[in-house]
Computed example of a mutant assay.
Amino acid sequence: MDRTPAAAANADAFLDRALLEEAAKKSGLLWVRADGEEQSRALWHAWYDGAVVVVGDGGEQPLHGLTAGSGALVTVRSKDKGGRLTGWPARVSVLEPGSEAWLGAVEELKGKRLNAPDTDTITDRWARECRVLRLEPVAGLTERPGEMPDASHAAVPMPTPATTRMPIPSGLPKLLFKRRRG
């Protein structure tokens, strides 16, 4: 068995790539921070042809800051615990609608898209209105089990007009707690 430093580095790179790929395939969400952005965004995705692919804009998830040729930092969560599992730098490229790579990526993404309003024509809508991006790993892992940063990475939630805190209707307690008459 070869124990040279070069062989050990190759084995580590192989294991890192296997962890990266398996984590991306299993996780339903990942966090992506585009170069120059302050916050990461949660994105649903698929794994296709050695990279993460995402669809966004045009009525789908926002892809702010992700442009062709730019970089991004991808963080993948653990499927069972939900915490950070691994992270890596990625190069962003835009897949052209109708190209072989775009068609393959869209087929993978269609299977991951939940509750689509137009499942029969979703491919046409994505070609017209959305961008399909490929986030290809470009270097080794920046985070891995046993080598996580000490910082919490907690972030202030993004501003939104949505709210869930409203007063309860005055008649609700009567409906919930009235006794049945026998």
Rank of each mutant, 00 (worst) to 15 (best):
residue 91 R to Q: 13
residue 105 A to N: 05
residue 37 E to R: 13
residue 163 T to Y: 12
residue 115 N to F: 14
residue 169 P to W: 12
residue 43 L to D: 00
residue 159 P to Y: 00
residue 179 R to M: 07
residue 51 A to C: 00
residue 49 D to S: 09
residue 104 G to C: 11
residue 95 L to Q: 13
residue 56 G to F: 06
residue 52 V to Q: 02
residue 81 K to T: 15
residue 96 E to I: 11
residue 47 W to N: 04
residue 152 S to V: 02
residue 142 T to F: 06
residue 146 G to D: 07
residue 89 P to R: 14
residue 21 E to H: 03
residue 52 V to G: 00
residue 44 W to R: 11
residue 8 A to C: 08
residue 72 A to E: 05
residue 7 A to Q: 15
residue 50 G to E: 01
residue 138 V to Q: 07
residue 48 Y to A: 12
residue 111 G to F: 06
residue 121 T to H: 10
residue 139 A to M: 07
residue 53 V to E: 01
residue 29 L to F: 12
residue 133 L to F: 02
residue 110 K to Y: 04
residue 101 A to F: 03
residue 74 V to T: 05
residue 43 L to H: 00
residue 179 R to A: 06
residue 139 A to H: 12
residue 110 K to Q: 12
residue 125 R to C: 04
residue 146 G to N: 04
residue 92 V to W: 02
residue 48 Y to M: 04
residue 150 D to S: 15
residue 93 S to Y: 03
residue 29 L to M: 12
residue 35 D to Y: 08
residue 106 V to P: 01
residue 52 V to C: 05
residue 47 W to T: 02
residue 120 D to Y: 08
residue 29 L to S: 01
residue 123 T to I: 09
residue 129 E to P: 00
residue 18 A to R: 10
residue 13 A to N: 11
residue 33 R to L: 03
residue 115 N to K: 11
residue 7 A to R: 09
residue 60 E to L: 10
residue 140 G to N: 03
residue 180 R to N: 00
residue 9 A to N: 07
residue 55 V to D: 04
residue 182 G to W: 12
residue 147 E to K: 10
residue 105 A to E: 03
residue 124 D to E: 15
residue 166 M to D: 03
residue 13 A to P: 07
residue 118 D to W: 15
residue 85 L to R: 08
residue 163 T to A: 14
residue 129 E to W: 11
residue 56 G to W: 02
residue 35 D to A: 15
residue 54 V to L: 01
residue 39 Q to D: 14
residue 181 R to M: 09
residue 45 H to N: 11
residue 76 V to G: 03
residue 3 R to M: 08
residue 56 G to V: 04
residue 175 L to H: 14
residue 50 G to N: 10
residue 144 R to I: 04
residue 21 E to F: 01
residue 13 A to E: 12
residue 135 L to K: 06
residue 168 I to T: 13
residue 107 E to F: 08
residue 126 W to A: 04
residue 31 W to G: 12
residue 167 P to H: 06
residue 85 L to C: 01
residue 168 I to Q: 14
